[in-house]
């Protein structure tokens, strides 16, 4: 395919072309499977939301508002995080074009930046879809703080993406398989305050929450959702999440760059394990 053969010379225009090429290929990839992908994604969301909505209905009055709210916000957060943590590079792997881009620094930068942008967009879409579906399934769930919450989504994607990069970089450097993104995904579900607050379980179990770095983000997300009227407080929480996102992203880029340098020198770039 002609787009695949564009030679990037290191100029800004070449890089933009390469990024467009990358995004075009991803879009084509997802377009080809859109109906099945969307059906499966929607069923997964319903499978998660509906049981808690039913449970909320049969529980005592105090729970009726708190349970759907808690779970819907948590699920939307986890969907945005997981999308950046696991999905993006897997689609590339399946297309068999990931390794082509790993051979040059410019190629890697193009792939990673375009994936970050794509993760943020997909994260926003997933996040909004889940919140709207949550509102449709449980009318108690309010959408009035939706714009502020949507503002926070890129920071969630950046954090997830940074962690995924660190995991991939570690693998490139050591050739050891440790699927950190998968572990983090399930640890976030179990002990990351996604489906229930940690103070509801025993103190020993709740300490597992210390190993979930994203708990910082979800607590700020819930604070913004609670609808405090002071704008400065909201902005301060949003800024804090972005600070964490940038920190993880920079660390991720540093680790994967180091890992790639080493892998290139050993000639093992094609053996990258993406933790999925």
């Amino acid at each position: 395919m002609s787009l695949l053969n564009i030679k990037a010379k290191g100029t800004a225009i070449a890089q933009i072309l390469r990024l467009s090429e990358v995004n075009l290929q991803i879009s084509l990839y997802y377009l080809g499977r859109s109906i099945i992908t969307v059906t499966v994604a929607l069923l997964r969301i319903i499978m998660r939301l509906l049981p808690f909505s039913v449970l909320g209905q049969v529980l005592a009055a105090g729970y009726r508002t708190s349970l759907p709210e808690f779970v819907t916000v948590g699920l939307a957060f986890s969907a945005a995080l997981n999308d950046s943590l696991i999905s993006p590079l897997r689609s590339w792997r399946q297309k068999g074009i990931f390794e082509n881009h790993m051979v040059s620094k410019l190629g890697v930068r193009g792939v990673l930046l375009s994936h970050l942008v794509l993760s943020c967009i997909r994260g926003e879409v997933l996040f909004a879809t889940i919140l709207i579906m949550g509102n449709l399934i449980s009318p108690e769930f309010s959408l009035k703080t939706l714009p502020y919450l949507m503002l926070m989504v890129p920071s969630i994607s950046m954090t997830g993406f940074g962690i995924m990069l660190m995991s991939a970089g570690y693998h490139l450097r050591t050739q050891r398989i440790v699927p950190v993104p998968l572990y983090l995904r399930f640890l976030t579900w179990a002990f990351g305050e996604v489906f229930f607050p940690l103070d509801k379980i025993s103190p020993i179990l709740s300490r597992l929450g210390w190993f979930v770095p994203t708990i910082f983000l979800i607590r700020r997300l819930r604070f913004v959702y609670s609808g405090t009227p002071i704008l400065a407080e909201i902005l301060s929480k949003i800024a804090q999440t972005y600070l964490l996102g940038v920190l993880f992203l920079v660390l991720g880029f540093l680790v994967i760059n180091g890992g790639l340098e080493e892998a290139r020198s050993k000639g093992t770039t094609t053996r990258i394990f993406l933790g999925v």
Partner: peptide, 15 residues
Amino acid sequence: LLFLSNLLPFYVWSK
């Protein structure tokens, strides 16, 4: 972890 993360929320909320 998948099994635990699916089961634990129901245990916590219904306890």
